[in-house]
Write a protein that binds this DNA or RNA. Structure first.
Lengths: 140, 140
DNA sequence: TATATACCCGACTAAAATAGTCAAGTATTA
DNA sequence: TAATACTTGACTATTTTAGTCGGGTATATA
């Protein structure tokens, strides 16, 4: 049970952006250097973040990306959804042909996994970008 | 972020066992049939469960596996540990050479992932095998 | 207006993890 | 002694992950 780099990098990159003036574009190149994330990979990630309206892009020289909302209004759950790494711990769908179907007693643990999904989603639902910065600042 | 089949099957199989008299061995063949899990794969999983003293084996004809403890004393966290699918959402260790090291401000999200791990582990720590059965029985 | 910067985007790929299978056993009971 | 059932290590196909590559387009500024 582990998180993939895409979600992790997305959060890292956005947290990084949050530390700079929110109205001026931050280039992926800078993020790449500061966070040690491949530039090409970041581009892929930001394409998704853009499509999901978490950031907007400013093209051309001195361009970059800008957050579309205040960091305290960007929930981690949004970010995860954007890079489509949905928290779905198990493949067994409500109406799958094989294996677990509602009527048989087979998938006795079905409810458990649903509950787990909700539980984890709840974590991300209650955390926003500015939460991350605060804990960091408190320490320095 | 998804759970692998090994952990899932382990929980399913043990939950299945819990529904039968606790002192007589349940064969993997039966579990395999009831839960639609490959017998060979189950063998692999139960080897680990046995090594970690969650079940004990009874060899020979009419043999099978027996739970070593009462289902209400078997926490899901034990099961996960046994099939060594530790909940460690991120690879970035405290003292890794590359990437995230304590002193630099790089891994700004480090604390977040630690918190997430704790959060998820907490879920498994507070659930035991008999919890699963109860929710099921309540429905029938 | 040339050039450098930076986003855009689909296709591709190496490596790792997952989800099993296989073969060749050993122990026990009926 | 035959059948049942656990034992164990090695092997393998498939899928997923974590990127890279190539060839763009848009914009600012010198």
């Amino acid at each position: 049970m582990k998180l993939n780099t895409k979600s992790r990098y997305a959060v890292m990159a956005l947290a990084d952006m949050s530390k700079f003036p929110l109205d001026s574009p931050v280039s992926l190149r800078d993020i790449s250097l500061r966070q040690s994330i491949s530039l090409l990979y970041l581009e892929q990630i930001f394409l998704k973040l853009k499509k999901n309206e978490i950031v907007k892009s400013v093209r051309g020289s001195n361009g970059g990306y800008v957050l579309r909302k205040d960091p305290k209004n960007i929930k981690l759950s949004e970010i995860f959804q954007a890079v489509d790494q949905k928290v779905k711990t198990v493949g067994c769908k409500k109406d799958s042909k094989k294996g677990c179907n509602g009527k048989s007693a087979k998938c006795i643990t079905h409810e458990l996994w649903d509950e787990l999904d909700l539980y984890i989603n709840n974590f991300f639902e209650n955390k926003n970008l500015s939460d991350l910065l605060m804990t960091k600042e408190r320490r320095n």
